[in-house]
């Protein structure tokens, strides 16, 4: 019982910290190359509209513009950090032989979100707080497919309140005194050394601001995502 209480306090403190900070730096990337070839892998982006009742609907044209905006924004944000991001043709990256590599990369990102960025209780003691995950030999497959030394994987979920939900939020606040959650921007970016398979850098995003539908705010998201990317 006492444990539960302590955890609750801890969770609240860390949770609050998370909301403010939105992301934490993982581990430094030692840059040995003069000009590392970094491939921006086809991104996994989902934009949705949240109805008054909390029903989430994916919106296709938002996703199309978000994909374009964020690709441009990430490239610009990388340039600002003295790096060149190369977009990758989705077709070879989605080849049947790379399916398991892709699924592994998704699962590793999930593990990093849970065990590295998530609830403090889910930390793995054997990692000693450092980012030690790998894609193993699949990295070499990816390297051959995209001809790069590093691969940047980005997964983002962006949701926006519909007009109805915004009105309901006000009514709910006035009548019941209960706030309604609005749009969320959650995601993760990981940089993988394709020669070793090691995940060398990762950053998580979890906040209630941001907008990928417009180039300006998308650049803000991109800068925030790549903030700690070693130069």
């Amino acid at each position: 019982m006492r444990c539960r209480l302590a955890c609750l306090v801890l969770w609240a403190v860390i949770g609050a910290g998370c909301a403010q900070d939105t992301a934490r730096l993982a581990e430094g990337l030692r840059r040995t190359d003069a000009a590392p070839r970094i491939a921006l892998m086809p991104m996994d982006i989902l934009l949705s509209r949240v109805s008054a009742g909390g029903f989430s609907q994916p919106v296709a044209d938002w996703m199309a513009s978000a994909d374009y905006n964020l690709t441009q924004a990430l490239r610009q944000a990388a340039v600002e950090r003295g790096l060149v991001l190369r977009s990758v043709d989705p077709a070879p990256a989605a080849a049947p032989g790379l399916r398991q590599a892709q699924l592994l990369q998704d699962a590793v990102q999930d593990a990093i979100l849970l065990h590295h960025f998530g609830d403090a209780r889910d930390r793995l003691p054997s990692k000693f707080g450092s980012l030690r995950w790998s894609l193993g030999p699949t990295a070499r497959q990816l390297r051959d497919a995209v001809s790069a030394d590093y691969a940047l994987f980005v997964r983002l979920r962006d949701s926006y309140s519909s007009a109805g939900r915004r009105v309901l939020a006000v009514v709910s606040m006035v009548l019941v005194g209960m706030p309604l959650s609005g749009g969320q921007q959650v995601g993760i970016a990981t940089l993988v050394d394709l020669r070793t398979g090691q995940v060398v850098w990762a950053r998580a995003l979890d906040r209630s601001t941001g907008d990928l539908r417009d180039p300006g705010p998308a650049l803000e998201t991109a800068r925030l995502l790549l903030k700690d990317l070693p130069q």
Partner: peptide
């Protein structure tokens, strides 16, 4: 201190 104790007491994963 309480947080540190809480952290170890509530961690789901234990070292081996």
């Amino acid at each position: 201190l309480g947080l540190a104790v809480g952290l170890t007491a509530c961690a789901r994963f234990q070292p081996v």
